[in-house]
Amino acid sequence: MPNRPTATDILDCEFLVIRGKLLEVAAALDRIDRGTGSTDGDARRENIRKTLALLGGDPADSGGKASRAEQLQLIFSLPYEREWRKAQ
């Protein structure tokens, strides 16, 4: 079995990485807001808002809930229709 590190060990290792990436996101959003015009109604902006809410929410649990990373990927995904072949 792999020798798995503790949550604190991982936080020690990842804290500055997380901080740096969140800062880049904040700065990029500020950059967009400083631009001329508006992105109101742009679906990409709404998806970004949803992912930020996701990151601040509860962690994945052992009850089958998808990880944050999986949920984030699905927010940025087009929907899959089981009956897609009928539409073609």
């Binding site: 995904s77 087009l78 897609w84 072949r85």
Partner: peptide, 14 residues
């Protein structure tokens, strides 16, 4: 790629 990955993967599996 990107936003097409999920539905495209499911379509391939179908």
């Amino acid at each position: 790629h990107l936003e097409e990955k999920y539905r495209g993967t499911r379509m391939i599996l179908d």
